[in-house]
Write a protein that binds this DNA or RNA. Structure first.
Lengths: 298, 298
DNA sequence: CGTCATTACGGAATGCGTAATGATA
DNA sequence: TATCATTACGCATTCCGTAATGACG
């Protein structure tokens, strides 16, 4: 096989067309240089130079090899530097999972700042629901999850990054839409679109608690997994719903959003960043350092 | 610097994720393999694997290096093969100089056949007049010249590949254009466009001899260097001219071509292939072998 | 205690430098 | 004879294989 060292020798001689000068440039003496060239020629099976004692010139095979040899040397150099930069986290990739709703409010800001602060790092995005993100984190398919709170914390770090109130999403032609101010009690016995207890455990429990605390009991007719779907059903007239404030960014035609009195301020909707404590991605480490610096600055 | 051998070891371990199996694949024992990996890691400055005794896995830096290492190995392999093929003439480049007129008749056929017979060889074309081609041949800028005969034969091989008669090129509204048959004598005292004695020595001498042999003396009003230019002047009414038959392929609007009686058949226009005897381009050698085979087949 | 990577060590091969040789103008 | 590549040879380093050690389940 061609050896890197031999290629380096070859390039030097091919550029100088003079063994002695090439040897000088390589910080060695001529004889071993001659020998390396001979070995290279032998391993290819052809002469690369024509030595006419007063003149060294390339054979066609040598002329052909020269640019390739340069390319290989350049690649080797780059590979080394790139591996080093990846190791130091100056370059690399961080895969981020996010829920659809986070994609409308929190994520864009975060990405903008991250890209600015860590320009060498390639940020890859994958939309998935909270439960899938937790799986993907554990399996190492994503480095970072932007998701709703969850109890599954085996080896996972968790940071609350946003809190927002729940708001009512109401079809614009619904009687409640015309009320000046809205209170939880107004939802009593109302048909509502509810979150599914397994696909959207967090929202399910949160909405349930909010109403239960006030002894209000709406009628839960529909159970769906994502805020998107909730809004789609609200718009189709299946009832009203409680959604995080940021969902109002979705600008669903035919839906109005209202603040609701009686919702405990101690129960906001939270958005969390989650990652594996033993994640070994150095680029990820730099992202975390960046978050840490942000947190302290506040 | 990264060594090829170390990269090969790295790729094997990265693919097997198991030192013993990788060593087996590399036809060596584990300990030196471990050592090569350590050396590689040291030369990069970072660990590439995490060895947890029951499990070998890549670090991010290693994951990043893997495709680059594969690429380098592939390139090294290719470089070797390519150099060998170039050396054997199975692959390579032949630069061919040609005169403008040759480009209309002889060259296209020749290229078609060469490309078919020697598919691995890249044929590069450069149009230039005979004198320039001779220079370019000597200096090694072209491998092969397709040109008019010349006396400069220092180390050059020469092969006549085409003979063609001279024909008259006449403006269509010229009195001679309407004659049924044309003889050299008809050119006596006629204004003619002549070839320049330094830029187109061969044509100059040839035309001169043709007329001289018959004691015919036209009037040479214009001297130009290329057949192209001759035709342009003929078309502009500066006179008539003798041109090689293949020039009629140029299909100049307003020019008619006529055979001429009295032109010695022993003095056709010749087209020659010329190359350096000591040309070391193996692809060129194959081209020559091809010509030789053609010649013998005839 | 079995598996598997690392460390330890001896022998072979490789690479470099110095000195001698050879070829060419 | 001067220049410059090659050959010859001795020494240091590198690389491989075998044997011993060590870590983890």
């Amino acid at each position: 096989m061609l050896e890197i060292n031999q290629l380096r020798c070859f390039v030097a001689v091919a550029e100088e067309l003079h063994f002695s000068r090439a040897a000088e440039r390589l910080h060695m003496t001529q004889p071993p240089l001659s020998r390396q060239i001979q070995l290279l020629e032998h391993s290819i099976g052809l002469p690369l130079f024509i030595r006419s004692n007063r003149m060294v010139r390339l054979t066609p095979a040598g002329r052909n090899l020269l640019p390739e040899a340069r390319a290989i040397l350049r690649m080797a150099e780059q590979a080394r530097n790139s591996a080093l930069r990846v190791g130091l986290g100056e370059e690399g990739r961080v895969v981020i999972g996010f829920t659809a709703v986070a994609g409308y409010q929190f994520l864009p800001d975060m990405l903008l700042r991250l890209r600015k602060a860590l320009p060498g790092i390639d940020l890859q995005l994958r939309e998935m629901v909270t439960a899938w993100q937790l799986d993907a984190l554990v399996q190492g398919h994503i480095d970072l999850g932007l998701l709703r709170p969850s109890s599954r914390g085996e080896g996972l770090e968790d940071l609350c990054v946003a809190k927002e109130p729940l708001m009512a999403a109401i079809p614009e032609d619904h009687p409640l839409a015309s009320l000046r101010s809205l209170h939880l009690k107004d939802f009593h016995d109302q048909p509502m679109v509810m979150y599914s207890p397994d696909e959207a455990r967090y929202f399910h429990d949160l909405v349930h608690q909010v109403f239960h605390a006030q002894q209000v009991y709406p009628r839960y007719d529909q159970y769906v997994g994502q805020v998107h779907s909730v809004l789609a059903l609200v718009r189709s007239g299946f009832g009203v719903a409680l959604v995080p404030e940021s969902a109002s960014r979705l600008h669903y035609e035919g839906i109005v959003y209202r603040r609701v009195g009686g919702v405990s301020p101690a129960k906001p909707v939270e958005l969390h960043l989650v990652w594996r404590r033993d994640n070994d991605n150095p680029a990820m480490a730099r992202v975390l350092t960046y978050f840490e610096r942000l947190r302290r600055a506040r």
